[in-house]
């Protein structure tokens, strides 16, 4: 995301973070005893293009709180994200944000 031209860059990260009425779905990653902390961080960086600090924070949330919301968006976007997370072996689910 950080490589996008300025006008686009201003909009896209916000759209990705936005909790508005048209983006009420979330992707959740659940803790499991097998997936390595380093690997989970790597997956968050690779799949979502998150900076390392954000990916690490989300990984720690998964580890300590048992789960973390890792993305939000439309239902279709969240299903696609969860499918990709499953391809990496992470335990991920889709849920309407409430």
């Amino acid at each position: 995301m950080s490589t996008a031209p300025a006008p686009v860059e201003l909009e896209r990260p916000e759209a990705r973070e936005e909790q508005g009425a048209d983006r009420p779905w979330v992707a959740i990653v659940w803790n499991d005893p097998v997936n390595l902390m380093s690997y989970v961080t790597y997956v968050f960086q690779t799949v979502f293009n998150y900076p390392k600090a954000k990916a690490e924070k989300l990984m720690m949330d998964v580890h300590h709180k048992g789960r973390a919301v890792v993305a939000n968006g439309t239902r279709e976007e969240m299903e696609r994200d969860v499918e990709i997370l499953h391809s990496y072996g992470l335990w991920a689910t889709v849920k309407r944000d409430d």
Binding site: E79, H86, G89, W91, A92, T93, V94
Partner: peptide
């Protein structure tokens, strides 16, 4: 390896 993508919605999990 292929977990349910919905925890509380069996129909949606099946479709996914």
């Amino acid at each position: 390896l292929f977990p349910d993508a919905y925890r509380d919605d069996g129909e949606a999990a099946g479709e996914f």
